[in-house]
Amino acid sequence: MRGDLVLRVIAKLLIPFILVFGLYVQFHGDYGPGGGFQAGVIVAAAIIFHALIYGLPLTRRAVPEWVVELMVAAGILLYAGVGVATMLLGGNFLDYSVLAHEPVHGQHLGILLVELGVGITVTGVMLIIFYMFAGRSRSPHSES
């Protein structure tokens, strides 16, 4: 679809804004509807949009497969790490109040980190699913 100039130009214009919007949803989970899951989906949608217009090889170069796999693992690690850290600091699993001196600050920090973990993992999983779907049909020689 790179041959179509309308799609190419509009995608170029749009993708940065979609990414900023996704991260906005990520960081405003406690103010409005949003949070890690939706943010992950939006960010992944932006990258998938890039792949649709410019083709999978280019996207794979920008976001290599090992990065995606790392993201899946790192997100879960962040989530679990926060939980374990709260346990080490003397609370229950994911009991955020012990993370900082004041319980409210601790809760903010904890929720932020956990949501970040969820967002990273969701982005990674969505992208892996897309890479597998898109890479499968015609090119058996996947270049991972």
């Binding site: 170029k12 993708i15 940065p16 990414l19 900023v20 991260l23 906005y24 405003h28 996207t59 920008a62």
Partner: peptide, 29 residues
């Protein structure tokens, strides 16, 4: 906090769109 997060976000997105090869004159008219 949200201002810093916004600045970091914008910076990350700029760098990432450079990496995606969409941050040229066409992409930002």
């Amino acid at each position: 906090f949200l201002m810093v997060a916004g600045a970091v976000t914008a910076l990350l997105v700029v760098l990432f769109s450079r990496r995606m090869d969409i941050a040229d004159r066409e992409g930002h008219p």
